[in-house]
Simulated assay, not measured.
Amino acid sequence: MTMAAVRYENPEGSNPAQGLYSNVGYVEDGRIRMVAGQLAVGAEGEVVGVGDFDAQFHQVFDNLEAVIRGMGGTMASVLKFSTFVTDRAYIEPFMRLRAARFPSFYADEVYPPNTLLIVQGLVKHEFMIEVEAVVAI
């Protein structure tokens, strides 16, 4: 049996990784891509929106959208999201912000699956939310 070749990339528009990882991994045919969890990181690698969940939410989705665009896709290419928040108190603002932003991504208002997890912390204590995605390109 021949092993499928695994590839990694950092598409144009990706912000700096916060560790030793690539923003995207995929099998050689490239049709299904795993996008690393996106954080509230600005273009220079700085944490955006310290203490401001709304600002971090928007930066995370801006970053996710930039990575997907860099691969030639759109947010409508997402098959599944996994969302990590660091406090139960962030669930309500997450739902509110998602309800406001997602209709611009999904005109028919049918949304991809999302797993929402409350975790003790993310890679830096300033981060409040992280979102990863499985994308079809």
Rank of each mutant, 00 (worst) to 15 (best):
residue 23 N to M: 02
residue 51 G to Q: 14
residue 33 R to A: 13
residue 28 E to N: 07
residue 1 M to L: 05
residue 73 G to H: 15
residue 49 G to K: 03
residue 32 I to N: 03
residue 31 R to S: 12
residue 124 K to Y: 12
residue 116 L to M: 14
residue 30 G to H: 04
residue 87 D to F: 02
residue 128 M to H: 07
residue 58 H to C: 04
residue 31 R to K: 13
residue 79 L to V: 12
residue 65 E to D: 12
residue 8 Y to P: 09
residue 19 G to V: 09
residue 26 Y to D: 06
residue 69 R to S: 15
residue 106 Y to V: 00
residue 104 S to K: 07
residue 127 F to M: 15
residue 79 L to R: 05
residue 106 Y to E: 00
residue 56 Q to T: 07
residue 50 V to A: 13
residue 117 L to D: 04
residue 61 F to M: 07
residue 67 V to P: 10
residue 24 V to P: 02
residue 11 P to N: 07
residue 115 T to V: 09
residue 18 Q to D: 04
residue 45 G to Y: 10
residue 11 P to M: 08
residue 60 V to Y: 04
residue 101 R to I: 08
residue 122 L to E: 10
residue 94 F to Y: 15
residue 86 T to R: 08
residue 49 G to C: 07
residue 50 V to Y: 09
residue 87 D to R: 05
residue 92 E to N: 11
residue 88 R to G: 06
residue 79 L to M: 15
residue 128 M to C: 11
residue 116 L to F: 03
residue 53 F to A: 09
residue 33 R to H: 05
residue 36 A to F: 00
residue 118 I to C: 07
residue 9 E to P: 00
residue 111 Y to A: 07
residue 117 L to V: 03
residue 37 G to E: 02
residue 111 Y to E: 06
residue 83 T to D: 01
residue 97 L to T: 01
residue 67 V to C: 04
residue 95 M to P: 00
residue 64 L to K: 01
residue 121 G to E: 04
residue 104 S to H: 11
residue 25 G to Y: 12
residue 70 G to N: 10
residue 7 R to G: 09
residue 106 Y to I: 01
residue 18 Q to E: 14
residue 51 G to H: 04
residue 130 E to N: 11
residue 55 A to S: 14
residue 67 V to Q: 02
residue 83 T to P: 00
residue 20 L to F: 11
residue 23 N to A: 15
residue 67 V to E: 01
residue 13 G to L: 03
residue 123 V to P: 01
residue 96 R to C: 00
residue 95 M to L: 12
residue 46 E to T: 11
residue 51 G to T: 13
residue 127 F to V: 06
residue 2 T to C: 07
residue 56 Q to F: 03
residue 8 Y to H: 08
residue 129 I to Y: 03
residue 125 H to C: 10
residue 129 I to R: 05
residue 37 G to T: 02
residue 115 T to M: 03
residue 128 M to F: 08
residue 82 S to G: 01
residue 107 A to V: 14
